[in-house]
């Protein structure tokens, strides 16, 4: 059942990215271009997404808290480190540069690569290498 839910969610996510236009790197760079001709579309994508997700997630968390079921939150990202540390800040700053240069964040890059765009496929391969380098550097 979890597999079916995850599949449907992945499909919905991809359709949302396509409809919103976020798979178009020029549209994303248009949003990041605040000093030039600014396209605010991405802000509305975020507003729409958070507008739907926030009430649902807050309800789910309250539901969990009421049941006081700590076991349910075991695999939850909530139990992950909540610290604001150097890797979080440096990693996000570095990601922003890659995002700005390409106009691709991981989701749209994967969708564009799947629809057969060679450049997006190269980008995804480079992303994999980048993740691999990060994993190597952390192990030391």
């Amino acid at each position: 059942m979890r597999i079916v839910i995850a599949f449907v969610c992945g499909l919905l996510f991809g359709i949302g990215l396509l409809i919103s236009g976020m798979v178009d790197p020029d549209k994303v760079r248009g949003f990041l271009d605040i000093t030039g001709q600014w396209d605010p579309s991405l802000a509305l994508v975020m507003a729409g997404a958070i507008g739907v997700a926030m009430p649902c997630m807050q309800w789910a968390r309250r539901h969990d808290a009421q049941r006081n079921d700590t076991a349910a939150g075991k695999g939850d990202a909530d139990s992950e480190s909540r610290r604001i540390d150097r890797p979080l800040i440096i990693g996000s700053l570095v990601f922003g540069i890659g995002w700005g240069v390409s106009g691709y964040c991981p989701g749209p890059a994967l969708v564009a690569a799947s629809s057969g765009h060679a450049t997006a496929l190269w980008y995804v391969l480079a992303m994999a290498v980048g993740g691999w380098l990060a994993a190597l550097s952390r192990k030391r």
Partner: peptide, 29 residues
């Protein structure tokens, strides 16, 4: 659905950008 656009331009900056995105998102989780 808007068609996924194919970015024009050189491959090298795109590869560097991909590396940075992969590295950064791994670090920042």
């Amino acid at each position: 659905a808007a068609a996924a656009a194919n970015p024009q331009g050189a491959l090298a900056p795109l590869l560097v950008a991909g590396l940075l995105t992969g590295y950064g998102t791994w670090m920042a989780h």
